[in-house]
Write a protein that binds this DNA or RNA. Structure first.
Length: 775
DNA sequence: AGCACGCCGACT
DNA sequence: GTCGGCGTGCTC
């Protein structure tokens, strides 16, 4: 950070590879001349300032350049850090993924490094002694150091490129605007104003006019007058460290550490709190040894609960816990990062953004709910966090090697079963299945089955069984939660005469019906329209709703239980649930998102109104996802086991029946692993999704075929390439996507095949090496 | 991502 | 004759 002496290095230094937060590959820059870091190895994970399009931009050093030094390279202007800003294992993981997935490294960095892209430095410039900047115009730096901000950045860069600019950088802590008393002022002050001025002089600078007024015991208008009359001025003061979320007081009672010692291990089953209790002794021991523990959660709700359960351990171990996620403001992020990098905070809990955490000695990474789809980033890189976490753990520390990885969650992903570990026993279960498909002589599936129902007389969308227990909930003043498979009133609106369903003009999907807004809404692109009076196919004025959504269920419950408070919680609408949280009787209707809330304390009943929606998705993970939802539901309440009613047309699905059979959380994933063997699905093969899309349908189809031909030309075997096929949504946001799937045995093989696609095609080609939620 | 360059349609 | 659409290519 000090001024580089204006001497030139005689040796041609090896360029550094620098990632910028842009969707481009890492670029080469020469080390800063005169820097002590110059001739040594590239400072991986350190941030640098580099010339970029006439200005300066922050980048992260990812390694030494492999190519031969190109004569026209620019130099790094300064190194911003004194220790790695991103963990070297994180950098290595991103480089590896970037190579395999053909994702620009900069895109991965901008998605996954959530702090530090703003250089917090003072920047001063002057002309190199003896040089003349006159050719750049009149307003250029002179012999004395001056703030760089006064000069035009492109002109400074031109001088920099010519080697005519001397620059120095100094750490610039965050500041806040404050107020300081001046000895001399302008117009004279009143009595009160003099008092305010006096107070400010005695206390020293204060952070705001309001603080100042409060301190002096006067009204804010008085201090404003002191300022206006020139007896005080605003100054930049170093900002106090921002407040970070407080750790919880709670610590789990000490248990012996019986967890595995392997490099990668897992812990599944039981209730969430049981798993944290088992994890606590290992975490505590590592923290006491001064090592770091990083816990990664897929979503805000899981992170909040992990923070509740684990953050109290840090204090016991004599260190600090920090929470790092998108919820922090920039000042908090910088402060938390500083605490991590210095080793002051040993326990780090966070979202994917915490994966870069530069703790100097990580002793364990804990990945929560590895099967959750929320681990799939929705932003540009579409990275899958568990895949990255594995790479980070494997890359490890140059000194200590692989970082141990613990995979912890409700139900193991089929991919996790290869690792050693433990499955905790399931919590007590009270489950009742309502069979919508069955004639009445079906055997009883639970304590509340009604053997005398006639077909078609089961009740829909609330079955008679569910209605009866709902009435009991009301009579006894208890609480119930009903899950509907979707928001809105119903899945779709259909003409009973001609079966026509209004579709989205942009996306070729059926529009969802929203009763409340009297609107048809596309859940794909957001298109919204009013409900047409008549079917635009046959002109019939009648419409019929199909497939219950939250609005419909709310309406049914209100009809069934007059006087019972009914609340709704979904993506469109969140009622105030404080009455439920206080234990008052009521029914909550929501989508799967209600699982991110704390279970209502008096919960006696959970109803899954139409389970089949989780199975009808054409995705080979549908069964796994459905099973996980069921397990999460029955383990939701931390202390009791509410009656769970599942209404379904497929009561024999193993994802459901294995719960009734008392199997543990590892049982169903093992079934999945066996079933997927013959299908060539993960974990037996790596699945890669390739999308070829263009505005013009024919061009997209031809390019997709060309991609397939290229893969076959590169030696792809029968069964390694599937497709191309038009996407199930024939048109999305105005483009026609075609899709291909690769099923490869190994990463090397995948890399080989993808290598053949490293050229231009007549349509946009996108590769996803960890696809989720597709057929 | 931005931003420039470049090549074809509707307009002051 | 230009203005402007977005396809293609580059940034060290």
């Amino acid at each position: 950070m000090s001024a580089p002496p204006p001497s030139r290095h005689p040796l041609p230094a090896q360029p550094w590879l620098v990632a910028l937060p842009l969707p481009i590959p890492a670029l080469d820059f020469l080390p800063p001349h005169g820097s002590p870091l110059g001739p040594g190895p590239a400072p991986v994970g350190f941030r640098v300032l580099v010339p970029w399009r006439g200005e300066l931009s922050v980048g992260v050093v990812v390694g030494a350049s492999e190519g031969k030094p190109n004569g026209r390279l620019r130099e790094v202007v300064t190194v911003l850090d004194e220790r790695p800003f991103a963990h070297p294992a994180f950098v290595a993981a991103l480089c590896g993924l970037s190579r395999l997935a053909r994702t620009p490294l900069g895109l991965l960095f901008s998605d996954l490094l959530g702090v530090g892209w703003e250089a917090r430095v003072g920047h001063e410039v002057r002309v190199v002694p003896g040089a003349d900047l006159g050719m750049f115009g009149p307003k250029m730096p002179g012999q004395d150091w001056a703030q760089a901000a006064q000069f035009a950045a492109p002109l400074l860069d031109a001088a920099r490129e010519q080697g005519l600019l001397d620059e120095r950088f100094t750490p610039a802590p965050r500041t806040v605007t404050g107020y300081r008393a001046l000895k001399e002022g302008g117009a004279s002050l009143t009595l009160r104003q003099t008092h305010a001025w006096d107070t400010l002089g005695n206390t020293g600078p204060l952070g705001s006019q309001l603080d100042w007024a409060r301190e002096a015991g006067v009204s804010p208008s008085v201090v404003a007058q002191v300022l206006a009359r020139g007896w005080a001025q605003s100054v930049q003061l170093p900002a106090a460290p921002p407040e970070l979320p407080l750790p919880s007081d709670w610590t789990p009672k000490p248990l012996p550490d019986t967890l595995p010692q392997e490099a990668v291990w897992r812990l599944h089953g039981g209730r969430e709190r049981d798993r944290y209790a088992r994890l606590a002794p290992r975490t505590l021991r590592l923290l006491e040894l001064g090592r770091g523990v990083l816990v990664l959660a897929p979503d805000g709700a899981t992170l909040r609960r992990a923070w509740e359960e684990l953050s109290g351990l840090a204090k016991v171990a004599g260190t600090r816990a920090v929470c790092f996620s998108g919820g922090l403001n920039p000042a908090q992020r910088e402060h938390a990062w500083d605490l991590i990098g210095s080793g002051e905070a040993g326990l780090i809990l966070g979202s994917a953004l915490a994966l870069a955490a530069p703790h100097p000695d990580l002793g364990l990474i804990v990945l929560l709910e590895e099967a959750s789809d929320a681990h799939k980033l929705l932003s540009g890189s579409r990275a899958f966090v568990p895949e990255l976490v594995q790479r980070v753990a494997a890359a490890g520390d140059p000194a200590t090697g692989q970082i141990p990885l613990a995979i912890v969650g409700c139900v193991p992903a089929a991919e996790s079963l290869i690792y050693p570990g433990e499955v905790l026993p399931p919590p007590p279960l009270r489950l009742h299945v309502v069979d919508y498909s069955a004639p009445p002589e079906q055997p009883e599936l639970g304590p509340l089955s009604s053997p005398h129902l006639k077909p078609g007389d089961l009740g829909y969308p609330l079955s008679h069984d569910l209605a009866r227990v709902l009435r009991q909930v009301q009579e006894r003043g208890r609480q119930a939660v009903l899950l509907a498979p979707r928001r809105g009133y119903s899945a779709l609106l259909r003409c009973p005469t001609c079966q026509h369903t209004p579709g989205c003009p942009n996306c070729d999907v059926a529009l969802r019906f929203h009763q409340e807004r009297r609107a048809l809404h596309c859940h794909q692109c957001g298109y919204e329209t009013v409900i047409p009076d008549r079917c635009d196919e046959c002109g019939d004025p009648m419409w019929q709703a199909r497939g219950p959504g939250t609005e419909w269920i709310v309406q049914e419950v209100k009809k069934l239980l007059p006087g019972m408070p009914v609340y709704r919680h979904d993506g469109d609408h969140q009622d105030d649930l404080s009455a439920l949280a206080a234990g008052k009787s009521g029914v909550l209707v929501g989508t799967q998102g209600v699982l991110s809330l704390d279970a209502p304390p008096n919960l006696a009943l959970i109803g899954l109104t139409l389970a089949d929606t989780w199975l009808n998705i054409s995705d080979f993970r549908a069964g796994e996802r459905y099973h996980r939802l069921l397990r999460q539901l029955v383990a939701w309440h931390p202390g009791r086991s509410p009656l769970t009613v599942v209404q379904t047309f497929q009561p024999g699905h193993p994802a459901l029946t294995c719960l009734l059979g008392g199997q543990d959380a590892g049982f169903y994933p093992a079934i999945e692993v066996r079933a997927r063997e013959g299908l060539g699905y993960p974990p037996h093969r790596l699945l890669t999704y390739i999308e070829v899309a263009a505005r013009d349908r024919v061009r997209a189809a031809q390019a997709a075929q060309e991609v397939a031909d290229t893969l076959h030309g590169a030696g792809a075997a029968e069964g390694e390439v599937l497709g191309p096929a038009p996407s199930p949504l024939a048109r999305v946001r105005g483009v026609y996507p075609y899709q291909l799937l690769l099923r490869t045995r190994s990463e090397d093989r995948l890399n080989e095949l993808l290598g053949s696609l490293d050229r231009r095609f007549a349509a946009r080609v996108r590769v996803d090496v960890s696809p989720r939620g597709m057929g």
